[in-house]
């Protein structure tokens, strides 16, 4: 099996049995950011730390990308193999809303307020044959 690497380092803990999103927290005002940043967009402080943002949240809003985007979109797909995908903001326990692709891609399967879980999925392979991974959310399976 091809080795798997994050498309962008620092967005989520990986490799990991139980991956979670990574962000930053301002040590002065407590506000979070995703992706992590060295300065705080709320109070301009330069004191921030990397923190785990968790792996579950609630769907705050959503849409469906119906057609294949042009560049800079870069995946395995061609216009023929493209499948619409969901896009949403997922509200995490800290209150931050993170934009994400969603596994669900039909209006019947998406609703504001749905419980969502994180998963790590392949985007494409790089020139060395390594599989590049990104994050997305999907509706939580009811217990």
């Amino acid at each position: 099996m091809a080795s798997q690497h994050p498309l962008q380092p620092g967005l989520f803990s990986w490799p990991s049995e139980d991956p979670e999103l990574l962000g930053s927290r301002c040590m002065d005002c407590g506000e979070h950011a995703f992706p992590s940043q060295d300065s705080c967009r709320a109070c301009s402080s330069e004191q921030t730390e990397i923190v785990g943002l968790g792996r579950s949240g609630r769907l705050w809003t959503w849409t469906i990308q119906s057609f294949m985007p042009k560049s800079p979109y870069l995946t395995y797909e061609t216009a023929e193999t493209f499948h619409p995908y969901g896009v949403g903001y997922v509200e995490l326990p800290c209150g931050l809303k993170v934009e994400s692709r969603l596994r669900e891609n039909s209006p019947e399967t998406l609703a504001i307020g749905l419980d969502m879980d994180l998963e790590i999925v392949p985007v494409r392979s790089d020139d060395d044959g390594r599989q590049l991974m990104t994050f997305q959310f999907h509706a939580a399976v009811s217990p």
């Binding site: 498309l7 962008q8 967005l11 992706p35 809003t61 959503w62 849409t63 990308q65 985007p69 560049s71 800079p72 979109y73 870069l74 995946t75 995908y85 896009v87 949403g88 903001y89 934009e99 692709r101 985007v123 990104t134």
Partner: peptide
């Protein structure tokens, strides 16, 4: 960073729809 565009999040149409 590039990942944002490469994974298909860089579309103004999505933003307007979600708002």
């Amino acid at each position: 960073d590039d990942w944002y565009g490469e994974t298909g999040l860089m579309l103004t149409t999505q933003y307007f729809a979600m708002k």
